[in-house]
């Protein structure tokens, strides 16, 4: 049995959860970044993750859609195992091409937007539907225009990323992720690279999404957004979940010393 097979563990039945994450471990060489993370997210639930730099938040998000292959543990979306498949009662790791197909169930939004630099806003949104899903061009373009309107940028379809502000780029990036009709949206500090005046445009789009019933896992230090949109707040540090709870209690009255320390730092930073 190879190591990647071992990472699949054993198959179990699925519950009512959109996302079931069990015992995720991730190492980079000698450095252990994730030390066993479990999480279940219901359909339509919004989970906000906070935590100090280097704590493993980004790595955790990236193991969910298998941009990073977890060394141990497993991820299920809507009951389907990601990265592995049961064959003759045994779990085997899937090849790159199959994992790529499964990955479409997640939309991902990055801190640095990562729009395709050689494509216009419209092409950024239609590229994957046309090339990956083989959607007819006219259909993909119509859907992309609908998404551009949704994120408030109907007049930017011909603009290249370099011609757009950070906030505009991030909203196009959200539209690009939505174009694949994902079941879960992952956000990795979507507003951290933005000028303050653009943050609210992006948060508004995310708020609309959550109200529309999208299941979301959001790494962010926007406490205001967390309180308004999140069903649950989670602190990840040292590769484990230190504390989790309903946002109001979590931010107003944290139970753990590490959470308290972290929150006071973030709030201090915001105040100055």
């Amino acid at each position: 049995m190879t190591r990647s097979d071992a990472a699949c563990g054993t198959a179990n039945g699925s519950g009512p959860w959109m996302l079931e994450i069990e015992n995720i471990h991730k190492r980079f060489g000698p450095l252990t970044v994730l030390r066993g993370i479990d999480m279940r997210v219901a359909k339509g639930e919004v989970v906000v993750i906070v935590g100090p730099s280097g704590g493993g938040k980004s790595t955790f998000l990236r193991t969910l859609n298998h941009l990073e292959k977890p060394d141990e543990g497993r991820v299920k979306v809507d009951g389907q195992l990601i990265g592995c498949e049961e064959r003759n009662g045994r779990l085997v790791a899937l090849p790159d091409s199959r994992v790529a197909v499964q990955r479409r169930q997640f939309g991902m939004v990055f801190q640095q937007f990562n729009l395709f630099a050689h494509m216009t806003a419209l092409e950024n949104i239609t590229a994957a539907p046309i090339k990956v899903l083989k959607v007819p061009r006219e259909e993909a373009v119509a859907e992309a225009r609908r998404l551009l309107a949704l994120v408030g940028l109907p007049d930017k379809e011909k603009a290249y990323p370099e011609q757009l502000s950070g906030g505009q780029q991030q909203r196009i990036a959200i539209a690009r992720a939505l174009a694949l009709k994902p079941k879960v949206m992952l956000f990795d500090e979507p507003t951290s690279a933005l000028d303050p005046e653009m943050v609210s445009d992006v948060l508004k789009v995310m708020l609309d999404l959550s109200e529309g019933g999208m299941t979301m896992v959001v790494v962010t230090h926007e406490i205001g957004f967390a309180r308004m949109a999140a069903d649950r707040a989670v602190l990840i540090d040292g590769g484990v979940i230190v504390e989790e709870g309903p946002p109001d209690a979590f931010f107003a009255n944290p139970q753990h010393e590490r959470t308290r320390k972290f929150l006071s730092k973030v709030l201090d930073h915001r105040a100055t």
Binding site: L67, A100, Q112, N114, F116, A128, V132, A173, R176, L180
Partner: peptide, 18 residues
């Protein structure tokens, strides 16, 4: 080509070759 371009492409379901 910045690393983020690879990641974004993978995140929308493209294979390595695509």
């Amino acid at each position: 080509v910045p690393r983020g371009q690879f990641e974004a492409a993978r995140s929308v379901g493209m294979t390595h070759a695509m």
